[in-house]
């Protein structure tokens, strides 16, 4: 019975989406020709804009690096305040709720608000990434703190270790791999999400995507697309390699 209900809900959802939206499905057959023409105009990619593309990519990278850096700083503080094993429920409960709300706001929306607040350029991008990433990273850090086993820490205290020594040689070794893994993972997400920030004027390569597509310069848009693909694949490779080292 529950399984039949699941299928029914699924079917209704799909039919509702097909029937209600004015998608213009009838345009699909004729679109094939235009799509191939569109792709044709992307080839060959216009490599003359390579210097600008590199510059845009560098700016995106800087936004991701600085956004991650500041998010880490905020997350260390908020992560401690959201850890069930460190602070009373009166603190970690509201902090966790706050982080959930922060996480729920899409990056592009935050970026638009930041552009409104501080103007165009990479600064609103950095602020938006910092804000958005902290919502996830602080939660991850709190969970890393909560998984630390208290017994080894107790043993160090019994041997006369100070609080700082307990933190350095009892607590940190236990949470380090999780924290490093989460941070690298969040950096990769930040980089991917920063690629489109320029569309709303928040800096980086996104500006060129916007400009070239809007002005029908598809050969230049193709160059930007290629550069983005290379950067994402590269960051994914580096991330995978790093993840294996943290165990």
């Amino acid at each position: 019975m529950p399984r039949a209900v699941t299928w029914l809900v699924l079917a209704v959802a799909i039919l509702w989406s097909l029937g209600s939206a004015d998608m213009g499905l009838e345009k699909l057959p004729g679109a094939m020709a235009r799509l191939s023409e569109f792709l044709g105009r992307m080839l060959p990619p216009d490599m003359s804009i390579w210097p600008e593309v590199l510059q845009g990519m560098a700016e995106t990278l800087r936004i991701a690096i600085l956004g991650t850096f500041f998010a880490v700083l905020f997350s260390v503080v908020l992560g401690i305040l959201a850890a069930e094993t460190l602070v009373p429920p009166a603190i970690w409960r509201p902090v966790r709720s706050l982080l959930a709300i922060v996480r729920a706001i899409p990056l592009i929306l935050v970026a638009m608000l930041m552009v409104g607040a501080v103007g165009l350029g990479p600064l609103p991008g950095i602020l938006a990434v910092t804000f958005h990433a902290t919502g996830m990273l602080a939660k991850f850090y709190a969970e890393a703190i909560d998984t630390v086993s208290p017994e080894p820490v107790k043993a160090l205290e019994s041997a006369g270790a100070t609080r700082l020594q307990q933190l350095r040689w009892g607590i940190w070794p236990q949470m380090a791999p999780v924290v490093l893994r989460d941070t690298v993972f969040r950096f990769e997400l930040n980089l991917r999400e920063s690629l489109i920030l320029g569309i709303v004027g928040a800096g980086g390569i996104g500006l060129y995507v916007q400009t070239y597509v809007r002005s029908f310069q598809y050969d230049k848009a193709a160059t930007v697309t290629l550069a983005i693909i290379v950067l994402v694949l590269l960051s994914e490779t580096v991330n995978t390699a790093l993840q294996k080292r943290f165990s």
């Binding site: 017994e151 080894p152 107790k154 043993a155 160090l156 205290e157 019994s158 041997a159 006369g160 270790a161 100070t162 020594q165 040689w169 009892g170 070794p173 236990q174 380090a176 791999p177």
Partner: peptide
């Protein structure tokens, strides 16, 4: 505290540290 040594039933070692560092941890006090 450093004058009194305790051997815990479940050993209470820090898993990700080497034997050497775990033993060195006994000297932190």
């Amino acid at each position: 505290r450093s004058e009194v040594g305790f051997i815990f039933q479940e050993f209470a070692l820090v898993d990700r540290l080497s034997v050497y560092q775990n033993v060195m941890n006994g000297r932190l006090g």
